[in-house]
Structures are given as structure tokens and as C-alpha cells.
Computed example of a mutant assay.
Amino acid sequence: MPRLVVLLALVLLTVPALPVPSQAQEGGDVWAALEAPGTVAIMRHALAPGTGDPSHFKLGDCSTQRDLNAAGRAQARRIGQAFRDNGIEVDRVLTSQWCRCRHTAQELGLASVEDFPALNSFFQNRATRDAQTAAVRDFLATAPDDAKLVLVTHQVNITALTDVFPSSGEVLVVEVADDGTVDVRGSFLIRAPR
């Protein structure tokens, strides 16, 4: 029996660490963190049933992509309303060019929506992961501390940047150091209506 315990311990020590699902929090602490200089909201797109994209995916054609359903659109509107209810005025909303992210960004109704290709999904092409993550870090490191930004992207992008595995529609509040280091200050999740 002791050999089995030792063997199990060795196996567990050699298994690479997997991203941990985030523990969503709601309340004043998250909103207060978002008001602090140097913080940014990074969110996973709202509910878009399925995983990945179809094989005939085309970036400019939403009919070829996985996209928000009615509940996902309602979820995005509720998230935008939460920002307004908590007095957070957003200066810019940057988004992945994938339709589910663009539609989330538009439904938030917080500010004009700008494409930011570094936020595009690399789920099906991990070769661009490091370059895209570095581009997001560089952008965040040089953003003015008083700018209120919302970035809408994908689970893989958020996990690469923060080691958090967010739910659909989850918003992470992150503090960004001058060197691009990202520290998660909290998160909140307003679930899609059923």
C-alpha cells in the first residue's frame, strides 16, 4: 500500500497544473477595484452555445461562426447595465473580431466598439498564442492609468493572460503594472437568463 501512495504522489507531481476555474464575486469590492487607476475589465464573450468554430469559419461572415443566442445577447445587455448601475463610465471597448465577441461588445452599450486583433481567438491555432498575449500585455502596459477600458475576448486568451478559466460573460478586473504584469483583483458573473 505505501508504494501505491508514493506512486500516486509522483504522478500528481508530474502532471502539469491546469488553469483553475475562476471564483466569480459580485459586490462593491469588484466595482471599487474597477474604479482604481490602472485597472481594466477583461471579459469572455457572452453565452454562445457550442465550442470552437465550424470548419467553414470565415472571419467576416457571422453565418459561418458560433455566435450569441438570445440568452447571450440578454446576458451582455445585463452586464452593460451593471456597469451603468455601478457608475462605471467606460472610455473604450476593444474586441476580438469574432462575431460572438463583437456582438457582446455592442450589446454592452458602454462605448463605441473597436476591433483589436490581438484579442482574436487562437483556440484552433495555438502558434499565435504568445505573440497575441504579448501584444495585449504591451497595449495594457502603455494604456493611460485613468482610461476605463473593457476588452472582450475568448477563454483561451484570458487564460493565457491571467491563468483564470472564465465562464461565458465573466468579467475579470485586472490591475496592470508598467511591465505588463497582470494581477486579477476580482471578477463578477451575471449569468445568461434561462
Score class of each variant (00 low, 15 high):
Arg44Thr: 08
Phe139Tyr: 15
Gln124Ile: 10
Leu4His: 05
Glu89Leu: 11
Arg194Ser: 14
Ser167Gln: 15
Gly50Lys: 08
Val176Glu: 08
Ala9Glu: 01
Gly60Ala: 13
Asp85Thr: 03
Ala41Val: 04
Ser187Cys: 08
Arg194Met: 12
Thr128Gln: 14
Val20Trp: 00
Val184Ala: 03
Val156Ala: 11
Ala76Glu: 07
Ser96Cys: 05
Pro49Val: 12
Leu151Ser: 09
Phe122Trp: 11
Ser168Asn: 14
Asp91Trp: 03
Gln155Ser: 14
Gly80Ala: 09
Trp98Met: 09
Arg185Glu: 13
Gln65Ile: 05
Ser168Phe: 06
Arg84Val: 13
Glu89Trp: 00
Arg84Phe: 01
Glu26Lys: 06
Val90Tyr: 09
Glu89Val: 14
Leu47Lys: 12
Asp29Ala: 15
Pro37Ile: 03
Pro2Gln: 12
Val174Gln: 03
Asp163Cys: 00
Phe57Met: 14
Leu59Trp: 00
Phe165His: 08
Ala111Gly: 09
Ser187Trp: 03
Arg92Leu: 14
Gly28Arg: 11
Trp31His: 04
Leu59Ser: 11
Thr39Trp: 01
Leu47Cys: 01
Ala177Trp: 00
Ser96Tyr: 01
His56Ile: 09
Pro21Phe: 07
Asn157Ala: 10
Asp29Val: 09
Ala76Asn: 08
Arg126Val: 13
Pro166Ala: 11
Gly169Glu: 04
